[in-house]
Design a protein around this nucleic acid. Structure first.
Lengths: 190, 190
DNA sequence: ACACTTCCCTACCTACTGGTAGATTGCCAA
DNA sequence: TTGGCAATCTACCAGTAGGTAGGGAAGTGT
């Protein structure tokens, strides 16, 4: 039997979903109505919007770190690991108007408080590190082929993923994202 | 002697700048204070936020089309044309917190009115078409090398550009964008 | 039985949003 | 001189934003 979610967790869930559609422009009123509670109750659990948003980003970042670590320790080959990793993004894009939490918050980086922006950039740094390690290992094994630094290649892949999600969502075309991802992979293994 | 800008043009200029920093979350109050006029005066020239935003996007899209057409007719080789094209994005990212108008509006695609979203997607379609044509010509001439459809390759390049701008702005790292762009080019010509 | 804590509520605040009504100003033509 | 138009203003609207003060209900430990 699963324990009922605490109010704080339910707030985090809804907030995460709203950030992934509206970015930092999400509203407390929307969370409250979704959960059939009052706005003031949210402030009991999370003092401010900044606090709540940071909690959402931190939680998501940890969850993502767990999943990528599992892939790393899976014993799969570099190519299979990369495809699993890309699958995380594709899954995030599916169902509804959601996309990557951090991509949207990066778009709102002028509005977002510094503490949240730090969390966003920390996420990107995490992903860059993880990808660079995988790329380095894959090149050593002769699976991947690219010129220059693995860090830049990792950054380029991330840019392709985030930009691909952004455009696919706007155009309501998930297939376009899939095609872009396939191309990113193809460019690495040829 | 240059004619003084009309109020409508000055509103468009400021609105464009604000959209490129805040996305659709820009405000009439900010435009008014920047121009030392009242909010109501903006509504005299542009009936609604939707109208103004669409005017901004349409103007920008035409201006961009003119610049890309100039590159196309410049007589430059495919590689030089591509680098000039990428330069447009790099320039847009420079000075301040601005980035590509359409990338930000795509991020706000849930909030943005349909008429504006159509304009955004039309821009992406323009760019995809222009790039695909250049890529096709470049591959025919033996300058570019890529597998599969030129349309998908064009989409992947656009995704890399938009995502690269997004991340570079959030991380306050224009150099990272430059590195990503160089990598995009390198992946094409090897 | 009592105090304390947790949790959520009602009611309210100030600031700001896009938008409207109507008066005012200044120019230009008859 | 006067009428009319373009452009801008003041003053206001309803709606929403995040946030606060304080009350009440329920449970817990003593």
């Amino acid at each position: 039997m699963t324990a009922a979610l605490s109010t704080a967790d339910r707030i985090l869930d809804v907030a995460e979903s709203l950030v992934r559609t509206h970015g930092y422009g999400y509203s407390f009123a929307d969370i409250a109505s979704e959960l059939s509670i009052r706005k003031a109750s949210i402030h009991y659990h999370f003092a401010s919007k900044q606090t709540l948003t940071r909690a959402v980003t931190a939680r998501y970042r940890v969850a993502f770190a767990v999943r990528t670590a599992e892939v790393h320790e899976s014993g799969l080959g570099p190519l299979a690991q990369l495809e699993k990793y890309f699958g995380f993004y594709r899954d995030a894009l599916r169902d509804g108007d959601r996309m990557c939490l951090y991509g949207l918050l990066a778009a709102d980086c002028v509005t977002v408080p510094a503490a949240v922006r730090d969390e966003v950039n920390a996420f990107f740094a995490d992903q860059e590190r993880w990808l660079a390690r995988l790329l380095t290992a894959g090149r050593r094994d002769g699976v991947f082929s690219f010129a220059g630094s693995a860090n830049v290649e990792a950054l380029a892949l991330l840019a392709g993923l985030e930009g691909g999600m952004l455009m696919a969502r706007s155009r309501r075309d998930v297939h376009g994202f899939t095609a872009v991802v396939q191309r990113l992979v193809a460019n690495l293994i040829r």
